[in-house]
Amino acid sequence: MSVDLAPELGTRVVPEVAAGQRSPRRLGLLTARPGLILALLFVGFVLVSAVVPGWFTRYDPNATAGPDKLLAPSAEHWFGTDELGRDLFSRVLHGSTLTIQATLGAIVIAVVVGLTLGVVSGFFGGWPDSVLMRVVDVLLAIPRLLLALTIVTALGFGTLPIAVAVGVGIVPGFARITRARVLSIKALPYIEAARTGGASWTRVLVRHILPNSWGPVLVLAVLDFGVAILAISALSFLGFGAAPPAAEWGTLISQGRSYLITSPWLTLLPGLFVGLTVFSLNHISRSLEELQR
């Protein structure tokens, strides 16, 4: 499960486009992209089901039913049942809640910390820049999964520690992107104009630089949403997730692996669900990036 993407490569420079042409082109692109609509729908479904899983399933995710164990997928149980007779579809949806919570937590940490670091080092330059970027270099040098494992072992098991562990791992990417953006904007004529017009550095930072650095960070946030889901699933697969009986997606995949030969759906269907979610998110982020051009 690779979580070491190099997000910087794809999104470095976003050429400026005349603002007036954008809106109609965006709509046209959306209708010309059925894949994007499907991806948006699926991610929407995952998000809604994470908030209110009860809308989509009537089964209690933790109610065991011995006689119904290891049933194959059917109209009654869409994803079949697990080794204790619990409805797997219900467990996947309720698992979404935890996984999405952890992912959002990780992304919020990464965006807030990454943006702050990036803006500070890009804007002020000099020794703060050197110090912060060397720290980022070190963080980038450590494999993310290892870093996350170390943090989660120190903090203990559970949803919040996982979010922190994964969040810390993706901070450097955000910091780098933001810094690059800030550096390029800082040199643009309108910043100079604002300064000449008497605006303070704080005002320039908040009114001009920050809003214009959002774009790539947003794309990266969507992309890293998928990366974070994978990382969180990896950690819960390894048993660092929420306390049982709650099950994150990775836990479900892990629990089913003893039955891979006889009841493959226990692992494959939650795995497919995670795969589709990440794929959709990647597709959305790629489309966002293209739309910005």
Partner: peptide, 26 residues
């Protein structure tokens, strides 16, 4: 590491109103 059996007991005790916390530890 919790086994399916632990979670089954957890659910059985829930039926009579006892909450079981499975504390996963190193």
């Amino acid at each position: 590491n919790t086994t399916p059996g632990d979670q089954l007991v957890q659910d059985q005790l829930k039926q009579v109103g006892i909450k079981v916390e499975l504390n996963v530890l190193t």
